[in-house]
Write a protein that binds this DNA or RNA. Sequence first.
RNA 1: GGUUUCUUGGCCGAGUGGCUAGGCAGCGGUCUGCAAAACCGUGUACGGCGGUUCGAAUCCGCCAGAAACCUCCA
Length: 504
Amino acid sequence: MLTVNNDFVIFNTLSRTKEVFKPLVEGKVGLYVCGPTVYSDSHLGHARPNITFDLLYRYLMYLGYKVRYVRNITDVGHLEDEVEETGEDKISKKARLEQVEPMEVVQKYMNSFHQNMEQLNVLPPSIEPRASGHIIEQQLMIESILKNGYGYESNGSVYFDVEKFNQKFDYGKLSGRNLEDIIANTRQLDGQVEKKNSFDFALWKKAAPEHIMRWPSKWSDGFPGWHLECSAMSTKYLGEQFDIHGGGMDLTFPHHECEIAQSTASLGHETVRYWMHNNMITIDGQKMARSLGNFITLQELFTGNHPILKQAYSPMTIRFFILQAHYRSTIDFSNEALQASEKGLERLMNAVKTLEDLHVSEKSSVDVASFKEKCFDALNDDLNSPVAIAHLFDGVRMINSIKAGTEKISESDLKVLKSFFHTVVFDILGLKPESATDSGESEILKGAVELLIKLRNDAKANKDWATSDKIRNELNAIGIEMKDTKDGVEWKKASPRPSPKERE
RNA sequence: GGUUUCUUGGCCGAGUGGCUAGGCAGCGGUCUGCAAAACCGUGUACGGCGGUUCGAAUCCGCCAGAAACCUCCA
């Protein structure tokens, strides 16, 4: 059994085991993660890998590594159906439907993706290369694959010769399959006359006359195959060998398998040392996917504007929800689960606030050091954020007990506890306090609500419960929640909920 | 059909040979004019049937159910 002390251990899909992470270059980490194809609004599914690898990025930085984090934007070459020759580029299709330029589609959805990521407090990567900006690099890679004999040209398109590659290397090693199985189980479809074998994949596609996104090449006016961009751009920015490649589990085959094949075919060796894959988000036990018609966009989640949503969920609630499951497990979406996360997060954040006004004692009755250690042990063990969070809740109880006076903490321990909480909650888990009153009208709203609170306090002082309750109830009805605490009245805007009409 | 994985208390989710994660809900209590909120306390659950073992939710086998990949997907 693997014991975790100070080593950071991650699960490598390639070996199917947890391995101690050792970077190629001392003190530095090269990290590549597959980014989105920007042809529509980003959805709940996009939150998972981006938050997972944001956690990894943050944790590596916490460990003191200088990290170069590359996450691409796919803005060309991702076909609607890779197998059918009739497959249309996703972005071209959207552009045709919306009657705009493909690059307008790209810009629009890239912008909204960036906005959503910022809302989720996902740090921007160090480099965010776009496939369309690296056509030359991709063409050069095709040339070297051809030169090494692992590709062939056919009617202006270039395909990767999987069978040839498999004679010398192992096609299928990442996804755990072998070519014989793939041959036995691949659908034979019409219209594949260009390819030697159905499992060969495109490196360069000759563009049909109506295809808008096209670049000149020695083979044809066309565009690069989807898998190629990641091989070309990861090598360009991280070198011929780099530390970690991440992405969603659904990309393992064929996308990442093809990446390995391309890089190996052109360079003669593999580039990636650790492959990491996050699991999927499910809805009612089924993967969320556009094709299944059960996807929810992030914008819909944040506003609550979707038939299956009982309320809006804040970006931090989504983030916390995702962090409460291990990244290699599926996580099942439901209103109940999201509401549980919302409340749990609030409890955690309140404790962080409480940390600021704890009274110190001469000696501690709590064990801050061992609590801290347990938390980092969990993170070191393949980024086990749910266990780390479970320990944080032990810390919450600790903080509340100190506040209540049933436990004591020394000044030095409190200092440690505070900095620990801030580091883990804000820097590593990437959570941030959310205030419901930061909109433009907040100053006016604030003044009005505080006036009403004053009136209510007067009524309370006069034991005029009818008036005081009326103010409370009516504010409540318009979505302002009040709490009578020892330190006075606190209030906040409740999470926006769709009106009953909208919910129908 | 092939490959792989999963099945944990009302819900979500960790763990993975003995030391009963955690959150939410529920229940009890503290607080409060009342309420809400908050806080404190509280739950021995691991699909079924066999086997291995001193001991299994954890390992093995079979059965049942579900999912993912094999086709675009995060």
